[in-house]
């Protein structure tokens, strides 16, 4: 039988994979990254504090795994655009509605941001982590999370014509 840690871990997989994709932008590498993070999480589950949310802890493990890996990777191969999801691929010109267009523009604007700003946006606005949780995942002060997040969102708003 699965215990609650395992159930919770399974439930967090989509968010973990999303985060992994945003880091590496390659589906195959993202899946391996998630698997690596799961293995490390299982091996170190005694270090998990049950009073904390599981997701930020998992994100941190996954991000560390990514740093281990990406810093050692001289060449990254071909990166895919994360916006090439099945949904985005069906855009055919006639059925493009405004919301979908805005979505694409948002993704494009997001992709153009500096990595450190995008990372914070993904954790806070996509994965709905608190500022404090995002700071914990990234190993940076909360004030740094806030300045990166606000700079990133101001830049997004400018690119998207929101004022």
């Amino acid at each position: 039988m699965e215990d609650s840690f395992e159930e919770h871990l399974i439930a967090a997989l989509p968010a973990l994979r999303r985060f992994a994709l945003s880091l590496c932008r390659r589906a195959d590498i993202a899946d391996d990254l998630v698997q690596t993070a799961v293995e490390r999480a299982v091996a170190h589950r005694d270090q998990y504090d049950p009073d904390m949310r599981l997701e930020p802890w998992l994100f941190r493990i996954l991000r560390n795994a990514w740093i281990d890996q990406s810093r050692r990777r001289a060449t990254r191969g071909t990166e895919i655009d994360v916006t090439v999801s099945p949904e985005a691929a069906t855009v055919d010109g006639t059925r493009v509605n405004e919301a979908r267009l805005m979505l694409r523009e948002t993704e494009e604007a997001l992709a153009a941001l500096p990595d450190d700003q995008r990372e914070v946006i993904l954790l806070v606005c996509f994965e709905e982590l608190s500022y404090a949780e995002a700071a914990e995942v990234l190993g940076i002060p909360k004030g740094t999370v806030m300045s990166r997040l606000s700079r990133g969102r101001v830049a997004l708003a400018e690119k998207l014509g929101i004022s």
Binding site: L13, A27, D31, L103, T106, C125, F126, L156, L160, I162
Partner: peptide
């Protein structure tokens, strides 16, 4: 507004199914 927009974008990405072999 940026928060709402990003939430929308997150929802669109969330619709990508988890590969069965990964699970």
């Amino acid at each position: 507004k940026t928060r709402d927009l990003l939430k929308e974008a997150a929802r669109a990405r969330a619709s990508d199914p988890l590969p069965p072999q990964l699970e």
